[in-house]
Simulated assay, not measured.
Amino acid sequence: MFQVVHRVSGAFQRFKEGMKTLGVLDAIRTHPDAFRPLFCHEPSPLTADVLEQLFEMRLSAVGSNKRSAEECVVAFWRDYLLDVEEQEGPLQLGAILAFATGANAIPPLGFSPRPSVDFLHELPLRKGCHLPTANTCINCLRLPVLKEFQDFKETMDFALKNTQGFGQE
């Protein structure tokens, strides 16, 4: 009770008095719905375009063999996001974001550090075992470098559907 109410009551009362000086407090009380976007964050719906813009692609040097393979995977990534958006909607896009960052929505102040995409060039232990990985501490998604979109889609679907997440339902 002390931490939540009594400790901040003085600052809250000063805030209310400041809002009263120009009649803002009365306006808020009269039209609460008009002021809600100023005081309450509502996450915007996730779309494929939003996710694409959110992630920074960490590509290899221009002209290298790795770069050309990575550019192919970037195209697969964009196509995959569009497919997921069409077929399963924003809920599954939230699962992709949660897989990479631990959050299923974009926080009001954004991410720090900015989510990024790295590429897994190592050879898989067995054929078909090249799965995407993520490090949620640094908001980094590592995508496998594959030659076919169908293989990419299957590995992404498998990884996303077979992770437990963070106990979120």
Results as ranks from 00 to 15, higher is better:
residue 59 L to N: 14
residue 31 H to M: 07
residue 25 L to C: 07
residue 86 E to L: 06
residue 107 P to W: 02
residue 87 Q to V: 00
residue 21 T to A: 11
residue 93 L to M: 02
residue 101 T to A: 04
residue 67 R to I: 12
residue 118 D to F: 00
residue 118 D to V: 08
residue 27 A to H: 10
residue 21 T to H: 15
residue 43 P to Q: 03
residue 36 R to H: 02
residue 87 Q to A: 01
residue 62 V to H: 09
residue 127 K to P: 06
residue 126 R to T: 04
residue 85 E to N: 00
residue 40 C to H: 04
residue 69 A to D: 04
residue 17 E to M: 10
residue 131 L to E: 09
residue 41 H to P: 12
residue 123 L to N: 10
residue 79 D to E: 15
residue 73 V to C: 07
residue 118 D to S: 05
residue 97 L to C: 03
residue 42 E to G: 08
residue 92 Q to G: 00
residue 3 Q to T: 12
residue 102 G to H: 06
residue 36 R to W: 02
residue 88 E to Y: 01
residue 45 P to V: 01
residue 130 H to K: 12
residue 49 D to R: 07
residue 95 A to C: 03
residue 124 P to Y: 05
residue 18 G to P: 05
residue 42 E to M: 06
residue 89 G to M: 00
residue 55 F to V: 00
residue 110 G to T: 09
residue 58 R to C: 06
residue 7 R to T: 10
residue 123 L to A: 12
residue 5 V to N: 09
residue 18 G to E: 14
residue 55 F to I: 05
residue 66 K to P: 05
residue 121 H to S: 05
residue 40 C to I: 15
residue 91 L to H: 01
residue 32 P to I: 06
residue 13 Q to I: 10
residue 74 V to E: 13
residue 97 L to P: 03
residue 96 I to P: 01
residue 81 L to N: 02
residue 58 R to M: 04
residue 13 Q to L: 13
residue 60 S to R: 08
residue 45 P to D: 03
residue 18 G to T: 09
residue 72 C to W: 09
residue 100 A to T: 04
residue 114 R to A: 00
residue 63 G to W: 10
residue 79 D to S: 09
residue 60 S to L: 04
residue 121 H to D: 07
residue 22 L to P: 02
residue 49 D to M: 10
residue 34 A to R: 14
residue 113 P to S: 06
residue 93 L to N: 00
residue 34 A to M: 12
residue 87 Q to W: 02
residue 81 L to H: 03
residue 129 C to Q: 10
residue 15 F to N: 09
residue 104 N to Q: 11
residue 9 S to F: 08
residue 62 V to T: 13
residue 129 C to W: 01
residue 95 A to G: 10
residue 40 C to V: 15
residue 103 A to L: 05
residue 24 V to A: 13
residue 10 G to S: 11
residue 50 V to Y: 00
